[in-house]
Computed example of a mutant assay.
Amino acid sequence: MLFTLPDDNTLYDALLARDPSYEGRAFVGVRSTGIFCRLTCPARKPLRENCEFFDSTTACAAAGYRPCKRCHPIGTSAAADPVIARLLDALDTDPDRKWAETDIAAMGLDTSTVRRLFRRHFGMTFIQMARQRRLRIATGTIARGGKVIEAQLDAGYDSPTAFRKSFAAMLGVAPSDMQTESNLKVDFIDTPLGPMIAIADDNALRMLEFPDRKALATNLKRLAKTASLSFGRTAIADQTETELCEYFAGTRAQFTVPLAADYGTSFQRSVWTALRDIPAGHTVSYGALADTINNPTAVRAVAAANGANQIALIIPCHRVIGADGTLTGYAGGLWRKQRLIEIETQYQ
């Protein structure tokens, strides 16, 4: 049911014909140039022996290929997949719906292949994505002063226990612990890589993370011990959202939003400062980053500081890769790290 790559000879014929039926579903890596393209790329066609075919841009990048600057293959595969488009449209049409795998099967889709497809493109299943959408609805109810039971019902949860567990798993605190008013505001910011949780006061951004980061709940719980949290926006969060939109649109390579400077050790802060000095579109190794802070033997400590960063994208820990050029761990998921590196090629 879901698309499976045909043999390489068929794909090469499609490449020569610039067949649009493979748009977003198949990509070609050209060994002689190190570039990967859409099959409809207008560039001169490579020899058959120089071609390697892939089913995703992530697979191309993992094999060491760079995106073509003529056909711009980044971002096409998910949008072009009819199964993804159908399910995302269904989710947008009825965001309150409590989705189950039986609903996916009722649409004539194979549940196991849908799980794999969404994990490959988004790092989460469709069911998890729908659950996050419902929890966001719940945060809006609480932000408006609604009761926890109202938030639970708005999110489509029948069980109060299940709702509290899901809420706490995402935010690290129980819904009843969220204050109706405080200086530290929590809100969501939508990005092409999924929603991000932004926490800011009137002076600085204190946290910017993807909700599916494993350490998010722990970090939020730690932050909640120092100050009460409430849902809402500050001017800092508004500035963060504006700059993120500009970044993904290709019009902003550097962020100017003020960041909180009162967390982390002095060593960690030196690493985070060095990270912000890496230009968009460039990557460095952990060893090179250690050299930058004049501490060449602290490679492991640098890696640990990189992982402790809780202001994603703006402090660009995604720009650090392995010494051999391979991707290494990223709290937001390796698929996001690869997408960010690909996105930033426009700033080179």
Rank of each mutant, 00 (worst) to 15 (best):
A331L: 08
K221T: 05
R339T: 14
E243V: 11
N183I: 06
G172E: 00
L229R: 00
A200C: 00
N309V: 14
D238Y: 04
Y157P: 10
D81H: 11
T113M: 01
G146C: 07
V83N: 06
S285T: 15
G329C: 06
E344F: 12
M129C: 10
P316C: 01
A260L: 14
G332V: 01
V320W: 05
A217N: 01
L340E: 11
H318D: 10
D55M: 05
A261Y: 02
T4F: 03
F267C: 03
L16N: 03
R44Q: 13
P42H: 13
A280N: 11
A280D: 11
K185A: 12
P316L: 02
H121W: 05
D212V: 10
P160H: 09
S21W: 07
K45S: 09
L87V: 10
L259F: 08
L16M: 09
A235K: 10
N295C: 12
P73Y: 06
R86L: 14
I35V: 00
K45V: 13
I84W: 09
V257M: 14
V186A: 06
A288R: 13
S56N: 14
A59V: 13
T10K: 05
K225S: 10
S166A: 13
A298W: 15
L16G: 04
P42A: 13
T33P: 06
C60T: 09
P195Y: 01
Q239P: 08
Q239N: 02
L340R: 01
V299L: 01
Q128C: 09
G146Q: 04
T326A: 12
F3D: 10
D190F: 08
T40M: 10
A130H: 07
T4L: 12
L15S: 00
D55W: 02
R48S: 07
K45E: 09
S32V: 11
L313A: 03
G281M: 15
S32D: 11
D277K: 01
F36H: 04
R133C: 12
A80L: 06
V173A: 15
L47P: 10
A303V: 04
L5R: 08
G307Y: 06
R319C: 04
R133Q: 15
F248M: 12
T113H: 14
P296K: 03
D202I: 04
A235S: 11
L244Y: 04
F255A: 03
L15N: 00
T125L: 00
F255G: 09
N183R: 08
I314F: 02
